[in-house]
Amino acid sequence: SIEEMVKEKSRELFALCDKEGKGFINKVDMQRLHGELPLSDEQLRDVFDSLDNDGNGFLTFEEFCEGFGGFLGLNVS
């Protein structure tokens, strides 16, 4: 299904951010992407804050997946 495809792709992209495989992304992981992605520190911080729905400082796979689904215009829950 499309939902499964989105989750599969999300898993790949999530792993690019969560290099140690912790199971979550924190702000340090996000900062490390600066230099790898054409986004500024501030933009990466904003992206993190906007994906971190509950604002607890940990970006879970579910939150990431939701954000990616939103980017694709899908409602993945």
Partner: peptide, 29 residues
């Protein structure tokens, strides 16, 4: 005063930029 719809749109653009960059990064990285 802040234009909420504009802020939402720019936020969306920023996320799109982020996910696009990640998608482009995938091969070879």
């Amino acid at each position: 005063k802040p234009d909420v719809s504009k802020t939402g749109a720019s936020n969306e653009r920023m996320l799109a930029n982020f996910f696009n960059s990640l998608l482009n990064k995938k091969p070879g990285s």
